[in-house]
Design a protein around this nucleic acid. Structure first.
Length: 417
RNA sequence: GGAGGGAUGCCUGAGCGGUUAAAAGGGGCGGACUGUAAAUCCGCUGGCGUAGCCUACGUUGGUUCAAAUCCAACUCUCUCCA
């Protein structure tokens, strides 16, 4: 293994982002000697991104910090067709309007992490719909189709598996990788983009792009992939009971985001510190080597750092303080996630289970009832024993709120107005 | 092109005419223990303002007092032969 020369690649490897690379030495040289423009693709099927994409976001951020130019590619065009790999799930047709709306939401997430603009290292966001929807089939075939070797594509792992299992692979799906390869070439032409980064599952598609670039225009393109991220217990990142861990605060409060990181398993602390914070490696090493309960300190730092990046200093400090008061002091911090309920409605009385549901502490009334039956529901820190309990304005505590808890960790406040 | 399997709840997977909201495991949620961790143990796990009702076993029809279970067609899947 040759020594890496560029700061960016050193960081990339040292922090655990590295999985595979097309030509590591040359890419490293490129990063060391000039400014590199690289892109990562994201689909726009939702209004926000969740922690599943956080690794890619962090990579773009670090790239920008190292003096390079990140491109965020939104798959507006490909989203229109729908990703066929999700077997039988009928693909909902997404309108242009929704796609645009989702893109706006996603951009607002990115703006927390990277700087957009017209400067040399400013990030840009592009939509592949701009060049894909206008594509003429015949012309495309003539110009690009000739460069794709079916023989070669059949050797790709993703395709091979499907064929071996006699699992039908639709033409559309097969074309997906062609479109993605075309994206890469198009970005090279438009923005001088020479590197595509993606998850390990994108390897085949990425390689396809580098080859298409070379064949059609003699471009030197690079590909870089990141490992598939799972927790130490093998679960996929970012899924919890309450749903996905979204990165923007209108879908998940900064407090809940903080809590997500605070509840990291011991075994994942070091890995997460490396991937999702910008603490120096010496500090990461120190923190991950803490033992037993002392590791909680590391988890708090992890939560603070992650929340700071996604929601800003103030929100992170507040979330940490809210957590401290809630868990360490046993107080009711007024900054816990809060829902306002009209006073008149409260005066009439609302069943406890309905309120739990309304506030998001359960996913259905039944679930809330079961929570209460199972003894996991609390009202102002008192266990609720009556399944049919009706809450009214009389249940408001000294701070003028009603505190509902599901289990020991999830709390929510009701504020009458 | 031919033959034979399969499609069940979030996932895996039993059931093969009524006693089935559907075994078991996983996951998830709650409880105990702890360090807001892991492991372990216990409970819950379709919906509904819940002694009742509604929706569910690929799709559509049919047989029957009664169907996830039987029949037909369709769709999708898997294995084997060519």
């Amino acid at each position: 293994m040759t020594e890496l020369r560029s700061d960016f690649m050193k960081t990339f490897v040292e922090r655990g982002y590295m999985h595979q690379c097309t030509h590591l030495d040359e890419l490293d040289t490129a990063f060391a000697e000039k400014q590199v423009t690289a892109y990562i693709g994201f689909d726009c099927t939702a209004r926000s991104l969740h922690v599943g994409s956080l690794m890619q976001i962090m990579i773009l951020r670090r790239m920008q910090q190292a003096g390079h130019k990140p491109i965020v590619l939104m798959g507006g065009g490909t989203t229109k067709v729908g990703d066929p790999s999700g077997k039988d799930a009928s693909r909902p047709v997404i309108t242009d309007e929704i796609i645009q709306n989702n893109m706006d939401g996603i951009k607002s997430v990115f703006e927390k992490f990277i700087k957009f603009g017209d400067g040399p290292t400013d990030a840009i966001m592009v939509n592949n719909d701009d060049w894909l929807s206008g594509l003429g089939y015949i012309q495309f075939l003539r110009e690009y189709g000739r460069h794709f070797s079916i023989n070669r594509m059949l050797t790709f792992e993703s395709v091979k598996i499907r064929l071996e299992r006699e699992h039908s692979l639709s033409f559309l799906e097969f074309n997906y990788m062609i479109l993605q390869a075309y994206d890469f070439v198009e970005l090279m032409k438009r923005h001088g983009c020479t590197l595509q980064i993606g998850g390990s599952d994108q390897w085949g598609n990425i390689v396809n792009g580098t080859e298409l670039g070379r064949r059609t225009n003699g471009f030197d393109l690079f590909g870089l992939t990141t490992p598939l991220l799972t927790t130490a217990s093998g679960a996929k990142m970012g899924k919890t009971a309450a749903g996905a861990i979204w990165l923007n605060d209108d879908m998940l409060s900064a407090y809940d985001y903080w809590q997500f990181w605070r509840n990291t398993e011991d075994a994942d602390v070091g890995k997460f510190l490396r991937l999702f914070t910008e603490l120096p490696m010496s500090e990461v090493t120190r923190l991950e080597n803490l033992e037993g309960a002392a590791l909680n300190q590391a988890k708090k730092i992890l939560a603070n750092e992650c929340t700071r990046l996604a929601h800003g200093d103030a929100a992170a400090t507040e979330a940490a303080e809210t957590a401290r008061r809630t868990f360490e002091m046993g107080e009711t911090a007024e900054t816990l996630p809060t829902t306002e309920i009209p006073k008149t409605e409260l005066d009439e009385g609302i069943p406890a289970f309905a309120l739990f549901n309304r506030v998001g502490l359960s996913q259905s009334n039944s679930e809330a009832r079961k929570l209460i039956k199972g003894g996991g529901a609390r009202l102002n820190d008192e266990k609720i024993t009556d399944e049919k309990l009706v809450l009214t304005s009389n249940d408001v505590n000294e701070t003028g709120r009603i505190k509902l808890s599901s289990g020991k960790k999830r709390h929510h406040l009701i504020l009458p107005n």
